[in-house]
Design a protein around this nucleic acid. Structure first.
Lengths: 154, 154
DNA sequence: GTATATGCAAACCCTTTGCACATCT
DNA sequence: AGATGTGCAAAGGGTTTGCATATAC
């Protein structure tokens, strides 16, 4: 994790671990809470400073879901996108990609990367509505993190 | 624009017109500046109040580019996505869509909408580098709005 | 031992809210 | 006239920064 002149501290190790273990992007507030369960005195400022550091060194990546607080995830994950549940406001990782983004891009525009965010209703929330017919869903494989959102979108 | 009990004022008309004329999503600060050139006394609070109103009534839509301030655009535009230039930080509209987002979505997840953001270098910024060979680029058709971003991303 | 990191509190955004005045119908 | 909207300034919430202390190397 450390670059030249950067120190390995308990705070940084714990913050990075929380992000790595989350399985889906986490917000600063959430990181603070989770780390504090193991490292009592941690301050929010340290979380922000560490996130900035990790983002600049390319270890971590900013993920923004419209209407939600910013979240962070490991930068070296396989290519994937995110799904945001309209009901529970949880964010899930969705593996793979549909590609073909150059298609509609006018000449002269160079595409370097892209971001896809899917909105809808997650398996957990949907199960409460429709009688759960398929017992074994592949959705179980997805990890998620709750949002800092208080009220549902729209 | 008005719903029941809502009034048509110079402020609201001007704010809506600025959003409609922009051609690409605009930030609250930018809206304030542009409207003030025609309507001197406008306050930032009114911009926010009007944006909230317009968003709730479905006239306007929130567009968030990671790392940028929030922007707003007309909600009734044809389906499109956005391109954010890494160099000039301008945002462009990109017509069309690559579709096929259900593909990798696990069973039990219901997809309702999606958001695609493209990152790269725009035609204007790219022209400065590579000798401008193609005189007539289709990119001219795209409109853009500058970002509130002070420094370039990453 | 020295440079770097942390915690706390203050400072800084951006956004929202309270209130008196202005404006629309 | 009465209800709704606006501007200003204060309040809120998230993020950053200054500074003395604690910690890593």
């Amino acid at each position: 994790m450390a670059r030249a002149g950067e120190r390995r501290t308990r705070q940084r190790e714990n913050i990075l671990r929380v992000i790595a273990d989350a399985g889906a992007p986490v917000a600063p507030r959430e990181i603070l809470t989770r780390v504090q369960s193991r490292l009592k005195g941690l301050g929010l400022a340290t979380v922000y400073r560490t996130l900035k550091l990790l983002a600049e060194s390319g270890v971590v990546r900013l993920v923004e879901i419209p209407g939600d607080p910013p979240r962070y995830e490991l930068a070296d994950k396989e290519h994937h996108h995110h799904f945001s549940c309209r009901l529970c406001a949880c964010v899930y990782e969705v593996p793979g990609c549909c590609g073909h983004f150059e298609e509609h891009l006018p000449a002269g525009f160079r595409l370097e990367s892209h971001e896809v965010i899917l909105f809808g209703i997650c398996q957990t929330c949907g199960a409460g509505r429709q009688a759960r017919e398929s017992a074994g869903s592949s959705a179980r494989a997805l990890k998620r993190t709750p949002s800092g959102r208080a009220k549902a979108r729209r």
